[in-house]
């Protein structure tokens, strides 16, 4: 595999820190407290999910980490040096340029660094192979299904071999079957490349299946209420999805989420 390094994933306790948020608050329009004093340490190699109800500031946290806006107070710092090639992003929508072919869309991060298409053709090809779209490099986005568009978006995020991938509910708009498939593929991709992923989701099941760390957030004001770890080893597959361990973990996370939403009755969600 060209140019996609294979960073080893250490056990959580031994992972070096990648970035740190300390007391981060974000206020919109001087009234909306989107985040209130959020603390979060992200380690190299984490698959970290931000889980919480709508409006709890998950997207805001992600945008702050991406450097798209500055916190009202508090600080966000990378441990050690980093550059713009260190971050890849996947949004809820595939966010492809409709006028460019699949390959040219994946080329974008390189293009913005001034690298010609010819010089990175192989890397683009490898990324497309990794998401199973090598036969669609010359297709236009409108010719692809929703799931395939999302794969292109993922290939674009991974193509520069970034240390950190930010994903904001990337599979929320997809059907269950496609979503499970993409979950599997995402885990395989992450294991292969050994990057860190911060993954925003509404889904308890998705977060348990994917992550080794889950950060549960609550709204009004947006804040972190609980951090959990999912101990099950990778690779995780269909077997894990149907295991009692998985059921137990989703139960724990559901409870945490319910408490975060201020609902203490224990009989429905």
């Amino acid at each position: 595999m060209t140019d996609l390094s294979n960073r080893p994933i250490l056990p959580i306790a031994q992972r070096p820190r990648l970035l740190e948020m300390t007391g981060v608050s974000k206020v919109f329009n001087s009234t909306v407290m989107a985040l209130d004093g959020m603390n979060l340490t992200v380690n190299e190699g984490d698959f970290l999910s931000l889980l919480g109800p709508s409006g709890c500031g998950k997207s805001t946290a992600l945008r702050l980490i991406a450097g798209l806006m500055r916190p009202t107070s508090g600080r966000i710092g990378w441990i050690g040096a980093h550059d713009r090639g260190d971050i890849g992003v996947v949004f809820q929508e595939p966010t492809l340029m409709p006028w460019a072919t699949v390959a040219r869309n994946v080329w974008l991060p390189f293009r913005l660094r001034g690298e010609s298409f010819a010089s990175v053709r192989d890397r683009v090809g490898t990324a497309l192979e990794l998401v199973g779209l090598e036969n669609f490099r010359d297709a236009y986005p409108r010719e692809l299904s929703g799931g395939m568009k999302m794969r292109v978006s993922i290939a674009r995020a991974f193509v520069t071999n970034p240390r950190l991938i930010l994903m904001d509910e990337p599979f929320a708009a997809l059907d269950e079957i496609t979503r499970q498939k993409l979950n599997d593929d995402l885990l395989a991709l992450k294991a292969k490349i050994g990057c860190t992923v911060i993954f925003v989701t509404h889904s308890v099941f998705e977060s348990v299946f994917l992550s080794d760390r889950i950060v549960v957030m609550a709204a009004r004001p947006g804040r972190v209420v609980q951090e959990l770890t999912v101990g099950a080893p990778y690779p995780r597959d269909m077997e894990f999805r149907t295991s009692p361990d998985y059921a137990a973990q989703t139960h724990v996370v559901s409870d945490a989420l319910r408490r975060a939403m201020g609902d203490h009755s224990n009989d429905h969600l």
């Binding site: 945008r63 991406a66 450097g67 798209l68 713009r84 971050i87 992003v89 949004f91 929508e93 966010t95 340029m97 006028w99 460019a100 974008l108 991060p109 293009r111 913005l112 660094r113």
Partner: peptide, 26 residues
């Protein structure tokens, strides 16, 4: 222009000129 695409360009450190040429004009 799609605001997510604009964010993406910003994250990748696109210059004003690149954003105009590769994103806004198309």
């Amino acid at each position: 222009t799609d605001s997510n695409l604009r964010d993406l360009y910003a994250i990748y450190g696109a210059t004003w000129w690149q954003t105009l040429l590769f994103l806004q004009l198309p």
